[in-house]
Design a protein around this nucleic acid. Structure first.
Lengths: 341, 341
DNA sequence: CTGTTAGCGCTTTCAA
DNA sequence: TTGAAAGCGCTAACAG
């Protein structure tokens, strides 16, 4: 038989309601009774049944996830993680709406506004296009008891409940570590960024450079910039600029494109390192054009965010940490298949 | 409001009991009624509430996990994964007992016997010491409607419901891939096994050798064997034998011990690759004695096993695949901290 | 300070 | 072939 609140009540000759009051310290119970109940609960090893509890509370909570559209393969994985974590807890009354926002910050700001003002939601998880420009809106929402979590990209000044995502400085450092391990005596490196030069990218670059500074045997690090307006021209230029380099680290989203350039080089192909995995990169790994790519388990990241929001909103449990940093994973030819889909 | 079975019943002027019968095709319902209910459920986008369902069924299920004691750090991680997956579903009436078995196969066989005959359990998840010697007992149990899942180590001939664990052949191949990438022109390799030479180790070796065969630029692969009886002597011997080698792959559990030997070498320290991560290996990664270690996400592995058993026993859902292969992860100095604890 | 009662969404008798 | 009723473990409103 199961040990329930009723079991405790029966053994102590009182009503389940009193037991419930004690178990949730709702107050208004004689201290002596409190102690008796607590002792009995301990003795019988009582654990409350969440299922029954949520069922009885009939509380409904809805949170909005505000996510970018691109890169699609990445956010699809995140969504899988979200859905997975939702599997059991939708039955508890916890629901999620995913809102995609396009390129512009304006659009994102507007979306956020709408969500907060609609009164439909009890909280929000957001991947800010730009942490700084969202600081104010997040701050005022949080102060008005509308909890917001940041995701994948932080807005540290905003007072968000907590952040879930990778540490991009570490990611850059890891890239440096790999570049160094995959090359021989000569260590002439290049790092490729694009003009957006977001916070994430800056961090990656800092981390990569920090690594090379700490490791005296690196000859140099060349900084190359892609121009989104004239992509093919700037890719061409990159190809020329990496002819004298032993390893290239693509810190922006253009790994596959750069790889195509490397493929065309006749000799001295550099070791190529980048981020994330899509079909193109998968094949380039198999062809040994890309040596390694650094991934962050998007599936786990998604489910962690759901869990934190759930704990906060339905269990009144604060996240243990302000930063919930997710694993950085190294993917090569040998283990890439585990990371696809 | 929520859409419940009652909602459907009301809209169709019938009782919730009939709706329930249809939803679970328990039979004894007029085809016309069946269709009406199904259509309504579809129309209202009805989803059953698992919480309420389990609560009402009051079914209790208990499964035994039979796991080895060593290496402790590995099984501790697995247990964390198990506990994690259990978090919500214990409230559904699904319980797990973990039984540790010591070194001998006899002890494990006995434990398995006891579990099956006790009548206390509804199923079992086991990490066989040796798949072959457990074939018979698993087979007869499964035939007697006592479902058994294998874990971490398979017993493919036994008719187990399904297997959860890594593909060790692939692990060996991955080690080959890494050894090759981390070395320069000269590729003289050694692989270290121990006398136990279990199925897992054989597979790793095969995979490693397969990789080197496919890659013509590998000079040779030396096979070295550790002797558990005279560990220090054989470690010494290993040290002498790897003096002329560019990379060493430790396929057995002695990565940290071999690393200590490598540390003592004055020059030509080979690239060291092995499996799993404990405190010792963590430090050896930081010191650049170990270059990389291959891990299988034990946390995920544990929770997957729980989920499969739960689905099978409580949801009557068969696993989609016979082999549930878990990810192989590459850990280096740069990302090791994410894998500790 | 404590007990009674009804009900969450679902399943399971039992009766019709 | 269908319905009524009770109950899973917990909570909430109301009464006392």
């Amino acid at each position: 038989m199961r040990v329930t609140a009723k079991t405790i009540a029966k053994q102590l000759n009182m009503s389940p309601a009193t037991v419930d009051r004690v178990l949730h310290n709702r107050g208004g119970v004689k201290p002596k009774t409190v102690n008796k109940v607590l002792a009995k609960a301990e003795e019988l090893n009582y654990t409350p049944n969440k299922s029954a509890s949520f069922l009885a509370k009939k509380k409904l909570v809805k949170v909005a996830f505000v996510l970018p559209e691109y890169p699609e393969y990445f956010w699809k994985e995140i969504e899988r993680g979200i859905d997975n974590a939702l599997e059991d807890i939708t039955d508890y009354g916890f629901h999620v709406d995913i809102k995609k926002t396009s390129h512009t910050i304006e659009h994102q700001l507007e979306t956020v506004h709408t969500i907060i003002n609609s009164g439909e939601y009890d909280g929000m998880v957001i991947c800010p296009k730009d942490g700084v420009s969202l600081t104010n809106i997040i701050e005022s929402a949080v102060n008005n008891d509308f909890p917001i979590f940041t995701f994948n990209n932080d807005s540290p000044e905003s007072g968000r409940i907590s952040y879930v995502g990778a540490n991009y400085y570490d990611a850059g450092k890891l890239a440096g570590d790999l570049a160094s391990k995959f090359t021989g005596e000569s260590k002439r490196f290049a790092i490729i960024i694009d003009e957006a030069d977001t916070y994430q990218m800056k961090q990656k670059r800092k981390g990569f450079e920090a690594f090379t500074l700490e490791n005296g045997d690196v000859d140099f690090v060349k900084l190359l910039r892609l121009d989104n307006q004239s992509m093919s021209a700037s890719l061409e230029k990159v190809r020329q600029n990496i002819a004298d380099v032993d390893s290239v680290y693509v810190a922006c989203g253009a790994l596959a494109e750069v790889a195509e350039q490397v493929k065309q080089m006749e000799s001295n192909k550099p070791v190529l390192i980048g981020h994330d995995l899509n079909d193109a990169v998968y094949h380039q790994l198999q062809e040994d054009i890309v040596t390694a790519t650094i991934c962050q388990d998007p599936h786990y990241q998604g489910s962690l965010a759901v869990r934190l929001a759930f704990n906060y909103l339905m269990l009144d449990k604060l996240p243990e940490k302000e930063d919930n940093v997710v694993k950085l994973e190294i993917v090569t030819k040998g283990n890439a298949k585990y990371y696809l889909n």
